[in-house]
Amino acid sequence: MILYLHGFRSSPQSFKARMMAEHMQRLGRADDYVCPQLSASPLLAIQQAEQILAAYLPSEITIIGSSLGGFYATWLAERYGCKAVLLNPAVKPPRDLEKYVGVTTAYHSDEIFEFKAEYVPELRACEVVAITQPERYLLLAATGDEVLDWREMVAHYPGAQQIVIQGSDHGMADFVDYIDQVIVFCDEKA
């Protein structure tokens, strides 16, 4: 099973989430993929993911997290012992998202998106200072990420399998080139 966690202000309609869903469909494995619409509240987003995780053994599920979803995936992988694939993950979202407190719209719709000041401490409560069992992680970090620093990502996941993509962008426009490697990692037994 693959649980995909999208990023900040994003949705299951993001480029990578749709690409994963379509790829799993082509493989005849659509039932092995889930990507919920996450709450703006980090606490509620984590609870949403935990409800899905509760139906599986840690060895039966891999979490794929993009950007802020990568931050959540890291916390969940540490807590539940499952594997995680991190796509340009946010490493320090309490620092990076503080400036986004307020009301805006979601990226893939005109839906109102509110990031409240009380969400910043919720993010702090989910910080993972250092990962354990780096073999459970696959990191894809793009040097051309215009939002997050790929060097912070690499430094935060020492010992993990790492693919540093030269160029690209935060949305990882060339994700199609790596999707098969992601699926292989997800399917490998922990």
Rank of each mutant, 00 (worst) to 15 (best):
H156Y: 05
Q133C: 11
I179F: 04
F115M: 02
T132Q: 15
P58G: 09
P93T: 06
A77H: 02
C82F: 03
A77C: 07
V176P: 02
I63T: 02
A106Y: 15
T74Q: 00
S168I: 14
L86P: 02
Y107M: 13
F8W: 05
E118Y: 11
A77V: 09
R151C: 02
Q133I: 14
I52Y: 07
P94E: 13
E127H: 10
E188P: 00
P12D: 12
C126K: 10
K99G: 03
E114F: 03
L43H: 13
Y100W: 12
A49P: 13
H170W: 07
E114C: 09
Y4C: 03
M153A: 14
Y56S: 07
D110W: 08
Y119N: 04
D169I: 01
A160I: 04
L27F: 08
Q48V: 10
E114W: 08
Q162K: 10
W75V: 00
E114D: 10
Y4M: 06
I131K: 09
K99Y: 00
L139T: 04
V164E: 05
K116S: 08
C126F: 14
W150Y: 15
A49C: 03
D187E: 15
E111N: 12
Y178L: 12
V120W: 05
G167H: 08
G65C: 04
V91T: 15
L97P: 10
A190S: 13
C82T: 08
V101F: 02
G65M: 03
G28S: 07
P89Y: 08
A54S: 15
Q161G: 01
E152G: 10
E127W: 06
A141K: 01
Y157A: 01
S66R: 00
L38Y: 07
L3R: 02
C35F: 00
L140F: 02
P36H: 05
D145P: 13
V85F: 02
G144N: 10
D96C: 13
D31M: 04
N88R: 06
P93L: 11
A173C: 12
A77I: 06
G70F: 03
R95W: 07
R29L: 10
Q161H: 12
I63M: 01
E152F: 04
R29P: 00
C82H: 07
H23F: 13
A73P: 03
A45H: 09
M24N: 00
D145M: 07
P58Q: 09
A21Y: 06
A30R: 11
R136H: 14
E122T: 06
P134M: 11
A190K: 15
